[in-house]
Amino acid sequence: MQPMKRVLVLCTGNSCRSQMAESYLRFYANELLEVESAGLRDQGVNPMTIKVMEEDNIDTEGLLSKPLSTFYGQHFDYLITVCNRAADADLAGLSYDEHIHFDIPDPALATGAPERVEREFLRVREIVKKNMLKFLGKLMAESQ
């Protein structure tokens, strides 16, 4: 049996997009991948992230915002960046085989009425889900 592939999902604050991506990858590929997420800085998990993920029946227990430095010196098979700031950052402390990038808008920047903010989180959640499923499809195609 092959060892599990390691994936690190990286964004600016590890509060929304990377947390969503980590949650979806764990849900859809828990037996195939070891998944972590981090941010260029640690901003804490946004409560709206938890809310919209749980509305999609995705387990959020144990989600924790972590700074990128937590993973310095570790090796990952895949580094997935979910924002341009993370993709353009100095990642010299990381070791990875393949870098995959998705430019996903930050729902934490949404303003206005609470309903409007939640709609943006839901919209971004669906973008993240689509991209993580696309990544998993790529992995499955490569393994055949």
Score class of each variant (00 low, 15 high):
103 D>P: 03
122 L>G: 05
51 K>L: 15
109 L>Q: 11
68 L>N: 13
93 G>N: 07
43 Q>L: 15
27 F>Q: 15
134 K>R: 12
130 K>N: 12
113 A>W: 03
126 E>W: 10
114 P>T: 03
116 R>I: 13
26 R>N: 10
60 T>R: 12
63 L>K: 03
120 E>K: 04
110 A>C: 00
17 R>V: 06
86 A>Y: 11
111 T>K: 13
48 M>G: 14
13 G>D: 04
49 T>E: 02
144 Q>T: 13
108 A>L: 00
47 P>R: 07
105 P>E: 11
67 P>G: 09
31 E>V: 01
19 Q>W: 10
88 D>P: 09
70 T>E: 13
63 L>T: 01
38 A>F: 06
54 E>A: 06
64 L>S: 12
59 D>R: 10
4 M>F: 12
89 A>H: 08
22 E>Q: 08
26 R>K: 14
27 F>W: 13
139 L>H: 09
76 F>Q: 07
57 N>V: 06
68 L>M: 11
126 E>T: 15
42 D>Q: 14
134 K>T: 15
97 D>R: 14
128 V>Y: 05
137 G>Y: 07
45 V>I: 14
50 I>S: 11
76 F>N: 03
92 A>C: 14
48 M>S: 14
55 E>P: 06
49 T>W: 03
80 I>P: 11
68 L>S: 08
46 N>K: 01
72 Y>C: 04
141 A>T: 14
138 K>L: 14
3 P>E: 08
117 V>S: 00
36 E>C: 12
125 R>I: 11
125 R>Y: 09
87 A>M: 05
88 D>G: 09
51 K>I: 14
138 K>V: 09
65 S>F: 01
50 I>F: 13
69 S>C: 07
2 Q>R: 13
10 L>R: 05
63 L>A: 04
39 G>T: 04
94 L>M: 02
12 T>A: 08
73 G>M: 05
65 S>H: 02
53 M>A: 02
131 N>H: 14
77 D>F: 05
140 M>R: 15
114 P>L: 00
61 E>S: 15
38 A>R: 08
64 L>Y: 13
9 V>M: 11
133 L>M: 10
81 T>S: 00
116 R>L: 07
82 V>Q: 08
135 F>N: 04
9 V>I: 10
5 K>E: 14
